[in-house]
């Protein structure tokens, strides 16, 4: 059976597309799926850094598209998970170095060898976004619980629907339960109310993501990480498992927990 091509995109930049691609890739591979992560952010590649594979790059996506390298030569095997491979982006080229047709062809070749092809989309709604969406069977939209991020996600959902893809699914990233409780951050319901698409994951704000990103060790490699568990749940849902959505409470400050205890006992 040919693999599924899933594009991870957002509209607004810096909301966690690359982080999500790496971690969902890791989580799927840990469950025995053959996964190719494709960095479509040509000119601003960093999926390789997040996955800790930067120093192994010989050829990149543009080399494959332009026929200088075969797919097999450009794909980098993950050092920890044999099922996981990365197709890095070119760093010295521009988005216009590839077109939609080439992306479709490339991903069709990949899906013959892999169960999942995960595409890390660049930010924005221009050429790079269109190239990333063109081959997708499924689209995951990342949003942070902020008005501007939600607005941009809405725009991208509209564009995805217009390109005749099945309805995209939503990942809410960097949720801070304590802020939500204080009414300082949109909660899941607020975001869903505007975007009105299916939710596939909620990932809390988690400091370990920053350190793990710097080390090139995606959090989904570890079982203890809160964000890692959230990404694993997304992978499970992609595989059709029913996983209840977690309620995040632990990350509250101690004072707040005490305050709530106190209130409850009154």
């Amino acid at each position: 059976m040919p693999g599924r091509i899933i594009t991870i995109t957002s509209g607004k930049g810096g909301v966690g597309k690359t982080t999500a691609t790496a971690n969902i890739g890791v989580a799927l591979a840990r469950r025995g799926q053959r996964v190719a992560c494709v960095d479509a952010d040509i000119g601003l590649r960093n999926l390789d850094v997040v996955m800790g594979l930067e120093n192994r790059i010989v050829y990149d996506l543009v080399d494959v598209v332009e026929g200088r390298a075969r797919l097999r030569q450009a794909l980098i095997k993950d050092k920890r998970l044999p099922e996981l491979q990365l197709l890095p982006a070119a760093q010295t080229r521009e988005k216009s170095a590839v077109n939609e047709k080439q992306m479709i062809k490339l991903c069709d070749d990949l899906r013959r060898e892999f169960d999942f092809v995960l595409i890390d989309s660049p930010a924005g709604i221009e050429l790079g976004f269109k190239n990333s969406i063109a081959p997708a069977d499924e689209v995951l939209i990342i949003v942070t619980p902020e008005v501007s991020s939600v607005r941009d996600a809405d725009r991208v959902i509209g564009l995805t629907e217009a390109s005749e893809k099945s309805s995209p699914k939503l990942i809410i990233n960097r949720l801070r339960p304590a802020m939500v409780r204080r009414g300082e951050m949109m909660d899941t319901a607020d975001v869903l109310e505007v975007l009105a698409i299916e939710l596939i994951g909620i990932v809390p704000e988690d400091e370990t993501i920053i350190t793990s990103t710097n080390k090139g060790q995606p959090v989904a490699l570890e079982d203890r990480s809160v964000a890692g568990a959230a990404f694993t749940h997304i992978a499970q849902r992609l595989l059709g498992e029913e996983v209840p959505f977690q309620v995040f409470d632990e990350s509250d400050g101690l004072m707040e927990r005490l305050a709530r205890l106190f209130r409850r006992n009154q």
């Binding site: 809405d154 959902i157 509209g158 629907e161 009105a196």
Partner: peptide, 8 residues
């Protein structure tokens, strides 16, 4: 008959 989204 649909959600009219940002930018539309």
């Amino acid at each position: 008959q649909r959600t009219v989204r940002s930018g539309q």
